[in-house]
Structure formats: structure tokens, C-alpha cells
Amino acid sequence: MDYQNICKKLIQPLPSKYQDVIANRFGLGGGTKTTLQALGNKYNITRERVRQIQNRALSLIKQTNKKIIEEAAKEIEYVLKKEGGIKREDILLEKVDKENANEVFFLLHLADPFYRGGGNEKIHFVWSIGKEKVDEAEQFITDIIEQLEDIGEPVSLVDLDIPKNLDRKWINSVIEASKTIQFTRDDLVGLYFWPEVNPKYIRDKAYYVLKREGKPLHFVDIAKKINEIFFQNDKRAQTNVKTVHNELIKDERFVLIGRGLYALSEWGYQPGFTKEIIARVLKEAGKPLSFEEIKNKVLLQRKIKENTIISVLSNNRNIFLRTEDGKYYLKDE
């Protein structure tokens, strides 16, 4: 549909000043949108007077071009319904006609089925078919935020308490319009400021990678996956192994559990050298343990060889003492 030509025809019968105000306010014909103040300065009138002219011009267009507007609105309404009856403004304009987004924006203001809402701390500007859809969207966002705050991590939509009668397209469009809720790259839902949802720094990207993989990784592999996931289309922005390794060392969320192998502390891994892990195991046991018992517990915390544990016990006999039956205990115990 030729939206640009339609808009030209709609404003042509208007007085010249009305035409100029509408064309500039909406950025028609490839122009940029002009503020009320700028137009007021141009005509030496107040901002409020410009607003009155704009509203009067829109009213005249609606009164005399009902059929043209209805016909032009059909395609926009089709796209909007296809997206669940509500859509974030910038995305809707791009979907309908990216090259003539300003003309589509203008027509949205003329056609009766469309309602513009949002533009607040909760939701971006949206267009919907009726005001009630915007009210429902804002309430839905509030409910989902409360649930996510209680859960504390990204989850699938099926893990949330969402009424079964809600259309998935409507849900997707509402989340897309929310300023607080966001989909992850894995189609989970979380709060936008969570590092696993919107990882800003390299350390957050490393955290995202480990959470996604669900298992310990070598720092070289973490760096590779960061570049694959976040910088695949921007080679110049890609990170290097040294930077990733430095971030892993500095951040308490990560624990070195073997030669270059990192895990998340939230998985139950504890920081420290092998000697400290063995000492912790013995202290928590509160009694002497056999080598086999020590080994099994240490290997839950570290990806190391059995000989490493033997070596640490042998080289620290002033700390790890042995009973007559060969079990180990801490000197202080």
C-alpha cells in the first residue's frame, strides 16, 4: 500500500498552515518530526495554539476521508491482530512499512480502532485495538514482575502462573513492550537488569555462558562461547582469552576447580586450593576420614587427579595427621 501517497491526498484539501503543521509534526514525506515549540517559533504562536491547529486538522481529515482512512487502516489492523492485538510502537511501524513509518504513525492517529498507550515507567509506547488491551498488558507486566522477583532467576513461560486463555502472541508482544521484563537468548523470561538476561560486561557474559551450559568449562572455551553468542557478527568487538581469564579470577561468582576449569559458586563449589578443600572436608566431618572418603568429597569440589590429593596430604603432614588405622584428621582437631 502506498501510504505516502495516501497521506498526501489526506492533507491536500487543508489550509496551507494546517498542511504544514501536520506534515512537520508527523514527519510526512520523508521529513523529521518537529516539536510543538519549533512550529510555534516558526509561526510566532504558542505551543498550545500549534496543538489546537494539529487537533483541528486531524478532526477535519477524519470527517471528510472516512472511507480512505478505513481502507488504509486495514493492513495496519491485520498486522496488529497478527501480533496479538498489541505491539510496541517502533516495532509495529517497522513491520507495517519501515520506509514510510511516519505515514503509518499518522494513519494510526486517524483510524478509530487504534489506541496509543504506555510511554511510562512500566511499558514503552504501544498501539492496540482498544484501550482495554493496554490496561490488561500493564496488569500482566506487574504480575509477571512479582513472580520473577520471587523466583529470582530466568524461567520458561510455562513455569509462570499465566492464565491459560491468554494468547501466546499477545504475551510475547506485551513482554517485548515491557521496560522491565525481557526474553533471554534461550527464550526464557527474566528481569532486564539480571546479568543472565542482559549481560553487559565480560564477567556477566561469562556468567551467562556457564549458566547456559550448566557445567564447568575451561576459560578458553568460555571465551569462545562468549564470542559465538554475543559477537558472532562483530569480529572487532570480540573478546580475548586473557581478558576473560582475568574477569573469572576477580569475580567471586566463579571458582577455579581444576587446571583452567571454572564453575559457578552457586553450584556449591567453594573457593580455595586443594589443601584448603581437604582441610574443610575434614573439619566438616568432625572425625578422621579414610583417603577414599576424603578423595570422594574433594572430587565433588575439584576436577583433579587422585595423585594430586595424595601429594597434598603427603606434603602437609604438619596439618594432616594420621591415626593408627591410617585415617586422616586435622592437627587442630
Rank of each mutant, 00 (worst) to 15 (best):
G118R: 02
F231G: 08
Q19G: 08
E324W: 03
W127N: 13
F125R: 11
E228C: 08
E103T: 11
R116I: 07
E292A: 09
G29Y: 07
P271L: 01
T142N: 12
E306Y: 15
K305V: 11
L36N: 13
P288G: 00
V126Y: 05
I319H: 02
K295L: 01
E228S: 12
E89I: 12
M1S: 14
Q52N: 04
K179M: 05
I141N: 05
L14F: 05
V209Q: 00
T34V: 14
Y328E: 00
Q54T: 07
I229A: 03
K225Y: 02
D20K: 11
K331T: 07
V104E: 00
K303H: 08
G30P: 02
G272I: 08
K200R: 14
K283P: 06
K98E: 03
M1E: 15
T32P: 01
I61N: 04
I171S: 12
G31S: 07
H245R: 15
I277A: 02
F26I: 01
L107R: 11
K250Y: 04
N55T: 03
Y201V: 12
Y201P: 02
I310W: 12
S156D: 09
F26W: 01
G31W: 03
T46I: 07
E306T: 13
S311W: 13
G258V: 08
F140A: 05
R203V: 11
W127T: 13
L93T: 13
G326A: 04
I304L: 03
T35E: 03
V134M: 03
P15R: 10
L39G: 09
L191S: 08
K81L: 12
R185H: 15
I91V: 15
V158C: 09
E77F: 11
K305T: 13
L299W: 10
Q182N: 10
K242C: 03
G29A: 03
G27N: 03
S290I: 06
K133T: 09
N172S: 10
R88F: 10
F273S: 10
L80G: 07
K283H: 10
Q147I: 06
